[in-house]
Design a protein around this nucleic acid. Structure first.
Lengths: 146, 146
DNA sequence: ATCAGATGGTAAAGTGATTTGACGATACAT
DNA sequence: ATGTATCGTCAAATCACTTTACCATCTGAT
């Protein structure tokens, strides 16, 4: 009685959300590496996360991804060097740049999307389509709360 | 037609899982800071994540948290310096250590737990208790798949 | 009982992602 | 016009983390 583990109680919602999210991430990374985009890591994929960097300004992206504009710019530099995107001058604001995906960048976004779809399909099958739909619906609501 | 954002489609499951998980994390960090544990960041809280470091061996913890034993030991060093835990010799294995929470460490674990409960309660209320229970159940199942 | 190999923890140096601080250029509001 | 805010970037410094290398201890085979 009163063992430390008992005192901690059952798995918390945080843990329940975290594990499958990490599974998605890892699956995405592995799949994307298989497809030949093996010069990237999770930090890079993070930049491409929904809704992706296409057309965005660096500062806007940095805010969205909750990192300093310097940190993001560092990543953009690497992604540009690796041929995934370019930073082009913004015609409407001479101070500003806009991120433009290259062909390779677009292909990456597509591959990421496909990887997630794949995993979702697998889960939907094993959970049952209607229960999976229910889960998705509840998660959408949860996201609206936060 | 065929705008970049259309091509990306609706929010993916990854994003749906990530956002609320990050909300949990941020709430936990903020709450814990309020309570006076303001010398910690997310990396530290990570060590305390379910089921917590109490009684664990460093290497075991490192495996559980998917980091190198050196990286974990670095964090344990800080947490020890800040008075949250101690590394004590393991009586059963002279090579080994065991993590023992201090009073402050136990208080932190309790505060973290409380913070998550708080947020869960808020969500349960706004989602409806039975729908929240459903969400939780589905997440448990999803965790068993992965 | 001994010895080989595995495992646990740690130290030290190096790496590299990220922060801090500062800057010139442009935009915008008054 | 002029002051202030914003955009991107550079450079230096920092700090978390990796790599490499150890020694101590355990374990199992002989």
């Amino acid at each position: 009685m009163n063992s430390p583990s008992e005192a901690l109680g059952p798995p918390l919602l945080g843990a329940l959300l975290r594990a499958p999210w990490e599974a998605v991430q890892q699956h995405m990374l592995a799949r994307v590496h298989e497809r030949g985009f093996d010069d990237l890591d999770l930090a890079h994929l993070n930049v491409f996360q929904y809704p992706g960097p296409q057309g965005a300004r660096p500062t806007e992206l940095a805010t969205r991804l909750r990192m300093s504009k310097q940190a993001l710019n560092y990543l953009l530099g690497e992604l540009e060097r690796l041929g995934y995107l370019e930073r082009r001058p913004d015609p409407d604001d001479l101070r500003s740049k806009r991120v433009a995906l290259t062909e390779r960048g677009t292909a990456l976004a597509y591959a990421m999307r496909e990887a997630v779809d794949e995993l979702e399909d697998a889960w939907a099958q094993r959970l049952g389509p209607e229960r999976f739909a229910e889960l998705r619906g509840l998660l959408v609501e949860l996201n609206e709360l936060a």
